[in-house]
Design a binder for these strands. Structure first.
Lengths: 115, 115
DNA sequence: TTCCTCTACCTCCTAATGCGAGGTAGATCC
DNA sequence: GGATCTACCTCGCATTAGGAGGTAGAGGAA
C-alpha cells in the first residue's frame, strides 16, 4: 500500500497556474509547454501527458486559451496555444490564490507561538 | 457547473502536513485540531469534518498518531491525538516536500527570464 | 521497400482526497 | 419536552494527476 507520493497530491490544482504562466511569455505547443514547465521549475515538475492535455482542453473550453493547428517541417502537426484576455485574468486569479495559500501554509507551519 | 474553487484543489495533500504541524506542540482532540489550523493559518484554512476525520484515522492507521478517548465534563467524549516518532518523521518529510514544491512553483511563476 | 525511432497528439481508467450532507449522542438550559 | 451546543463519524460526489495504450507523420538504416 505505497502511498502515491506526497508530491502528486500537492500538484493538484497547480496545472492551470503553471500552464498559463509559461504561456504568458508567448505561444507554445503542447510538448513545449511541458518542457518549459520542466525547465522553469528547475526539474521539480514534469507534467505527464495524461494530465497536461486534458488541462489544455479544459482551459481552451473555458476561453482562457486559443489554439490552432500548424504544420511542422519535421514531424506531426502541432497545436499552438496562446493565452487570451480571459486567460490573463484567470492567471491572475490563480496567482493570487496560490500566494494566499502558500502564505497560509507558511504561517501555519511556521510557529507554535503566534497570536 | 461552477468550478469548485481553486483553493479546494490546492488543499489536496496538505491536510497531513497541517494536522501533524499543530500536533507537534501538544496533544489535541479533533475539533481543537480544526480550530488550531484555522487560527494558525490566519483563517486561510478551515478543514471540514469530512476531510479532517478521515485524515486523522489514516494517520493513526499509519502509526503517525496515537489516540485515546477521554471524558469531558461538558459534552461528549473526546479523542485526543498525539504525534509519534514515526509521525515526526512523516512531518519532516511533508515539510521537505512542501518546501521543495513551493520553491518549484515560485521559480516557475517568477520569471520568464531564467537560465 | 520495409522497419525503426522520434515527435506530437490524444483518451481511458484508476487512485486519492476535500467537501457537503446526514447521522449519533451527551450535556445544559428554558 | 425541546432546543442547542459540542464532538464524533460515514457516505457519495467531483476533481484531477498519472500510467498505459493508441494514432500518425517524417527521416534514417538495412
Amino acid at each position: 500500500m505505497r502511498r502515491p507520493s506526497i508530491r502528486t497530491q500537492l500538484l493538484k490544482g497547480t496545472t492551470p497556474l503553471l500552464v498559463l504562466t509559461v504561456l504568458r511569455d508567448g505561444e507554445l505547443y503542447g510538448y513545449e509547454i511541458a518542457q518549459r514547465i520542466r525547465e522553469r521549475s528547475g526539474g521539480a515538475f514534469a507534467p505527464s501527458e495524461g494530465s497536461l492535455y486534458p488541462a489544455l482542453h479544459a482551459l481552451e473550453a473555458e476561453g482562457a486559451l486559443q489554439a490552432d493547428w500548424r504544420e511542422s517541417d519535421k514531424g506531426p502537426k502541432r497545436r499552438y496555444y496562446r493565452i487570451t484576455d480571459k486567460g490573463g485574468a484567470l492567471l491572475a486569479e490563480h496567482e493570487a490564490e496560490w500566494a494566499s495559500f502558500a502564505r497560509g501554509v507558511a504561517r501555519t507551519v511556521a510557529g507554535p507561538t503566534n497570536a
